[in-house]
Every structure is written in structure tokens, then in C-alpha cells.
Design a protein around this nucleic acid. Structure first.
Lengths: 233, 233
DNA sequence: TGCATGTTTCGACGCGCATCGAAGCATTGA
DNA sequence: TCAATGCTTCGATGCGCGTCGAAACATGCA
């Protein structure tokens, strides 16, 4: 009897309808909080927690704690591949999404997350900083500032040597609840959004956390980080 | 509410250890009688019959009656692919506590994956075909056959123009769960392994999916694809 | 500090399903 | 026609596990 890999154990984790629903909800590779996954699976939070714990122990999911939220995501692309391969056996059915209100759309597009920039724009900015080699992702949900990054911030009028890092570091990776990707937080993120406000690149919208990118803002973002306005819609 | 493809239902069928054992026993693409499968799964014939009925109803198996025997086999290569993919997300990072058994080593080295060649040898052959320019990787997990490849297969006695491609194409990329690389599957892969069997380049080992490469086989692989035996050990 | 929210843990309930014994069919051979 | 073999169906048993209520824990906000 050849001791085959625990194919049954893996299948067992996927076999439960509630777990399968949660896994399917994570197929896009983004992370979602436990409560949302519970809703997606139509079970109570307690039940969902139990399932998520098993999926975690089974190595199908990874988790990231953010405040009182716990964001779950697939453990890797190989998990998604296996799920899609399984789905290809049975009959497929289209998935529809729920529409968003106008306000929610604006919020999703650009907003302050506590004290830094979030939303699609926040993520695009972070992505640009990474691609230009100004930031690099580091351990413990941190970003490290490169020499080129120091130079760039200096040219933009931010003296990074004067910023006091907290005990969590100078720049942190914050998980975005609308886009489910990381954006720049921490002291450096605070200085960056303050710079954008000061330079009139972005403006607050009344009674909302949403912000607007000004024409000058789009010009700056394009010149410095290669971000095109049309690419974010 | 999103009614997803019943990925859970498929996984449920695989999740049962007895059923998983029977499916694994059928991974070489050959058909086996119910009693043999019952023995492979270490359950009584009644229990096996129940399981086989469910696998049949679920579309994972096909059955063929001959006299008082009922021969079960996988419903298709897509089932084998799903099973192998599931197996690939097993204990990958965990350090192997015990060395592989002799049988497992042979299985890892060369075996049939449903109806084509897999393992280190299968990957080496595919690699050789790619390096010689006989195949090129294409989209949708396919391989495209080049004019040089058509010529080569023709010289080997395989008329590729006579092979009917499935809706997935003539040659597919199948992910190997032991080596984590792609090997040649699809109708072309079937013809290739049949050729190797017919030319006595490889031989089946009794009651296993493992195959042996004969001395003649090594000679052929070296001459045509530049594969050295020692390089695979 | 107190309250609200998100998440997990604990405990108990109840359904579902795997399992096997016994019996029913089907096929083969004498 | 009778017996043996291979497989399936039926029925009863028992356990595993999914489920949710209650409560503990953690975090954020006023």
C-alpha cells in the first residue's frame, strides 16, 4: 500500500458546502474578513470560525490580523488552481455581484484610511513606489525605504530622516478593506498624504472619508509614479 | 445568493478515504473490477459497491459490465488531472520524515498518469521535445506541435495528422504532482506512450502505475531527445 | 472607562453517512 | 437444474461533525 499524499484530507476540507463557499469567495486572491466569509457561506460567525480554523490548519488558507478583523486569503495560487480544476469537473454557473452606491464607489476609489491614503488610488500609489524601487516589502508587514526612495521623498519635500519611526517601523503595509491589497501606512504614509494635501493633489470630500484627486494631482501621479487616471477606472 | 458550481459535491466524493483509495487505484486509466477496488480500499464488497455507485452517479467513474464482473474506470483524463492537482497541494513544505519507499521512488521516477507518461522521465521527455523544437508551450495549458515536431513524430511512426484533437487541443500541459512541472498529455501524449510501449522502450510494473525504462528505451531517449539516464537519478 | 463590534471558544444537540450482516440478482460452469 | 462466484440492495447501528446559543476575548470609539 503506497502512502499516497492525503488527497482525501484535502478534499475533505473542500467538501463541506460552507467551506467551499468561503474558498470560492477567496478565489480572486484577495483577503476577506471572517465575518464577510461567514455571510458568503450563509452560516453564523461561530460556525465560520470553526471552518476557517480547519482550513488554516490544513494549509489552504493564510490569515492576517488587522485590528479586530482577521483577513483570510488562499495560501497560494496552487490552491486556486486546485479549486478551479475541481470546478471544471462539475457544471459551472456564473457569479453575479451586488451593485455599489455612488458614495460607496467614491469611497472605494480614494479615501483616508485613518491617517493615510487608501482605496484604489492609495494602492496605485503604493504600487508605483514599489515599482520605481522606492520601497520594498519587508517582514512583519513593513516596507523598507530604499536609498532611491529617500532621495525621491527628499526631492518631494519630505525629509525622511526627520520622521520618527514607531515601534512598528517607519512604513507599514496596511490591508485595504475595499481592494484587499496592501497600501502604505505608518509615519511615512502619514507624511505622504499630508504632502498630497499640501500640494493640492487631493482634496477631502465633505462629511466623508472619501477624497478627490485634482487635475494637478493626476499630473503629479503620472509624472512621478507612472499612474494613469484611466487605468484606475 | 450565488449558487456556485458544486465544487463541494465533487470534493465530497473524493473526501472519503475509501473512495479516494479507489480513485487512486484507477489513476493509471485502466479499468478494474469492483472486488479488486474493494480490496484496494480495505472495505467489504457491500461498502465498496455503495461508494462506487456514488462515484458513478457523480460522474467521476464509468462502468463496463463483462459477464459477472463490473469494470470501473475514471470517467476521463480530466478526472485524473483533478486528482493529481489535489495531490499536489499536500505536504509540500513539510520535511519528509521517512525516506521514500522503493515503490514510491519508482512511482516518482516514471509512471502513467491516466493515459500518458509522467514522473521524472515524463518531464524529461517533454523537456527534450521542447528543447529540440518539436513542441512549443502555448496558451490555455496547451502545447503546439511545430513542423519539425510533426516530421519527428512521423519518423517515429506516429501520423500526427491522423490524431483527433479533443476540444482541449492536441497536446496539453499536465502538472506533475511529484515534480511540480508540466509534462505532455492529451491525444499526442497518449500516442507517444503507446509508441514507447509498442517499441518496448518502457514496460508496466505489475499492479502499479510505475513503469520501467528498458535498455533499448534509454538508447532511444538518448538518440532522439538527448536524455541521459544518469542525469535523471 | 464604558459600550459596541468583530472574532473565537465552549458545549450540546441532532442529522447524515459510512459500515457491515443478511438477503436478493445475475452469470458461469458442471 | 443446482451450486458457486461476483456484485448489489436492504436494514440497522453507531459515530463523526456541522450547527448554533452563550460567553469569553480583543479591539476600536466616544
Amino acid at each position: 500500500m503506497t502512502t499516497q499524499p492525503n488527497i482525501a484530507a484535502v478534499a475533505f476540507l473542500i467538501a463541506e458546502p460552507a467551506r467551499a463557499a468561503m474558498l470560492s469567495a477567496l478565489l480572486d486572491g484577495r483577503a476577506r474578513p471572517a465575518g464577510e466569509l461567514a455571510h458568503a457561506a450563509s452560516v453564523t460567525p461561530q460556525t465560520a470560525s470553526s471552518h476557517l480554523g480547519k482550513l488554516l490548519a490544513g494549509g489552504l488558507l493564510a490569515v492576517e490580523t488587522q485590528g479586530r478583523h482577521r483577513y483570510y486569503r488562499l495560501a497560494g495560487s496552487h490552491i486556486a488552481l486546485a479549486l478551479e480544476t475541481l470546478a471544471s469537473i462539475g457544471p459551472t454557473e456564473s457569479v453575479r455581484r451586488k451593485p455599489l452606491t455612488r458614495g460607496a464607489q467614491k469611497l472605494r476609489f480614494a479615501r483616508c484610511c485613518y491617517d493615510h491614503l487608501a482605496g484604489r488610488v492609495g494602492i496605485a500609489v503604493t504600487h508605483g513606489l514599489l515599482e520605481k524601487g522606492f520601497l520594498v516589502a519587508a517582514e512583519k508587514k513593513r516596507f523598507d525605504l530604499t536609498p532611491a526612495g529617500t532621495k525621491w521623498f527628499d526631492r518631494m519635500g519630505v525629509d525622511t530622516t526627520a520622521i520618527k519611526p514607531t515601534r512598528y517601523g517607519l512604513a507599514r503595509q496596511c490591508l485595504d478593506w475595499t481592494e484587499r491589497q496592501h497600501h502604505l501606512a505608518g509615519p511615512l504614509g502619514v507624511h505622504l498624504i499630508n504632502l498630497l494635501f499640501a500640494e493640492s493633489c487631493i482634496r477631502r470630500l465633505p462629511s466623508s472619508r472619501a477624497v478627490n484627486v485634482t487635475p494637478k494631482g493626476w499630473k503629479v501621479l503620472k509624472e512621478h509614479l507612472g499612474i494613469e487616471e484611466w487605468s484606475l477606472l
